[in-house]
Structure formats: structure tokens, C-alpha cells
């Protein structure tokens, strides 16, 4: 539930080098539904449990990686307020010109980390939504990993201290957990606009506009186990897990889709409240924070990004 002006990260667009293989993976392995194609051939998806028109878009490109993420804000008036506040913060704002069927006006800007961030207030309801009257948990049994929602993302880039300042001071989000270097510089921050443990996270990294992963929510630890079975069955390149994060306390697996972008399937996690004290990690213990069972960092986790 949103408790700030920012309801959720509602839309992510990713670049893929192998569109057909990646589309099949999101549909058959993750279990997302294909909503349709844009006029320029991008493919739109949503999970079985989401209400909005679509939440994930794949764009064929010569390189894999991140195009943008868009946050849904509470209403049109707030959207205009946040546009003005973003400009006052120092980021020039534009109106997104690429087609996102079903979406209203989207404002966008480039964050100091090199990533494009967008804000919107209006989006049409999808054609196929979860039941509203005496609802079953689903209409048809979910496929594949049974992803319930696009949950969060982790971006790598320079000067995340400024990014955190933007997300807290302008968007009104808060960070339940963080990690600074021994000399006090921001190293990793987990931010949320609601009760989810995180909507977006940042790690300090030299190269701008880099993505570590985007994540889909699964129901529970059993669903994580089922996802692991599918990783084995489909010869998916697994990165880490199944394991637990001490940070956010979520249960998790990381793996790579066919174009090399890392995906997380995530379950659990604590409820975040803005008035609770913040949890802090020291850099020497961050391995245990990320991988609680392993108790140490996994080299590929830090170095492999798109």
C-alpha cells in the first residue's frame, strides 16, 4: 500500500538482444501474459495478478540493458507537483514521446546515475484483471514461476547519494535499510514508497546507466522452490540461490534471461514503515546481508551487470 506520493514502480522497459527467446522466457518460464505489441514491435507483458494495462516491455536492441522505469504517483495534480519539484531539484523534465499503450502522460528525466526515470498518474485497466467479486486467487492456474507482480529493481551507477536525495526529498520515499563505506559514503540504499521492503535500490558503481536486476514477486518459499525446479528444467543460467537476504529478509533466486539481463524472483520481505528506525549494514558484513545462508559475497553478483 502506498503511504507516500509514489504508489509503485509500475512499468519497466528493458532492452534485449534476442527478442524472440526473451519473449518466450518471460511468457513460459516467468509466467507473464503477453498483452500485445506496440506499433514499433516492442512486446508488452503483465502478470496474472496485476490490474494495469502492462508492467513490462521488451525492446529489441543491439545491446541488452535498461531503458527506463516509471513510477505511478497518486493523482494528476501530484504528477504536476512532482514535475515542478524535479525541475527545481535540477533535472530537466521531458514528456515521454514513445508509445506505451494505455498509459497517460509520462514525465521523464535522467537521474545522476544515468538512468531514465519516469512518473505518471494514469493508466488504463488491463483487459484481463484478477477477479473483483467473490474472487478466486486466480482465474486460470498461473504458468511457469507464477510471477505475481513486477516488484522492484536494483540500479548501478555513480553518485547514488544524490539519487537517494532525489527519491527521498522529491518523491517522498524512504529507505528502511542502507550501507555506507567506512568513510561514510553511500554504497547501497534500498528505497520504498509504501510498505514493501523496497521499490528500487541503488549501488554505487562507476559506469552509468547500468542495471543489476529487476524482480518479480512470488507467493512464498514454496514458489521459490518451484522456480528453482524450472531453472533446472529449462537450463536457465542461475546466478544465486535459492537463499534468503538478511537485507529486506526476502527469499530469492537470481538468474539470467536469454539476453543476459539478470532477473530476481523474490518472496516475503518485511513490511516497511517510514517511522521505523533505519537498519544499517557495514561494508564488511554486506555479503551476509545479501546472502544470509552463504554468509559471503558471490563474485558474479557484483561484477555481472547489463
Amino acid at each position: 500500500m502506498a503511504i507516500t506520493k509514489t504508489i509503485r514502480p509500475g512499468l519497466i522497459q528493458m532492452r534485449v538482444t534476442n527478442l524472440e527467446e526473451s519473449v518466450a522466457f518471460y511468457r513460459d518460464v516467468l509466467g507473464l501474459d503477453v498483452v500485445g505489441k506496440t506499433s514499433d514491435g516492442r512486446v508488452m507483458f503483465k502478470t496474472f495478478d496485476e490490474f494495469d494495462h502492462h508492467s513490462v516491455v521488451l525492446r529489441a536492441a543491439p545491446e541488452s540493458g535498461f531503458d527506463y522505469v516509471a513510477f505511478k504517483v497518486t493523482d494528476a495534480e501530484t504528477l504536476e507537483e512532482l514535475k515542478a519539484a524535479t525541475e527545481a531539484f535540477g533535472y530537466p523534465v521531458d514528456i515521454a514521446s514513445d508509445e506505451q499503450p494505455g498509459y497517460g502522460k509520462r514525465y521523464g528525466f535522467t537521474l545522476c546515475t544515468g538512468h531514465r526515470i519516469e512518473l505518471y498518474a494514469e493508466v488504463d485497466m488491463a483487459e484481463n484483471i484478477p477477479m473483483l467479486l467473490n474472487p478466486d486467487p486466480w482465474i486460470d492456474p498461473p504458468r511457469g514461476m507464477k510471477a505475481q507482480r513486477f516488484d522492484h529493481l536494483l540500479l548501478y551507477g555513480p553518485n547514488i547519494g544524490e539519487a537517494v536525495r532525489y527519491f527521498t526529498e522529491v518523491l517522498g520515499m524512504f529507505y528502511p535499510e542502507y550501507c555506507n563505506t567506512p568513510d561514510g559514503k553511500p554504497f547501497a540504499y534500498w528505497l520504498t514508497g509504501g510498505n514493501k521492503a523496497h521499490d528500487i535500490a541503488f549501488v554505487e558503481y562507476e559506469k552509468p546507466n547500468t542495471i543489476h536486476h529487476h524482480a518479480f514477486y512470488l507467493e512464498d518459499w514454496n514458489a521459490i522452490g518451484h522456480a528453482a525446479d524450472l531453472i533446472g528444467k529449462h537450463r536457465v543460467k542461475r546466478d544465486v540461490g535459492p537463499t534468503r537476504h538478511a537485507i529486506t529478509r526476502g527469499q530469492t533466486i537470481y538468474f539470467f534471461e536469454p539476453s543476459g539481463n539478470r532477473i530476481e524472483t523474490y518472496a516475503g520481505g518485511y513490511a516497511a514503515y517510514p517511522d521505523n528506525p533505519k537498519r544499517q549494514w557495514t561494508v564488511d558484513e554486506i555479503g551476509r546481508g545479501l546472502f544470509y545462508y552463504e554468509g559471503e559475497l558471490i563474485p558474479s553478483f557484483l561484477e555481472v551487470v547489463t
Binding site: T17, N18, S64, F256, G260, P299, S300, E303
Partner: peptide
């Protein structure tokens, strides 16, 4: 190699 995306994306 310590790891990699195995999808032609990360360059490791």
C-alpha cells in the same frame, strides 16, 4: 570466468 549472464549481455 567467475560467472556471467550466459546471454551475451554482460560482457564478462
Amino acid at each position: 570466468f567467475k560467472g556471467g549472464c550466459e546471454g551475451g549481455g554482460c560482457g564478462i
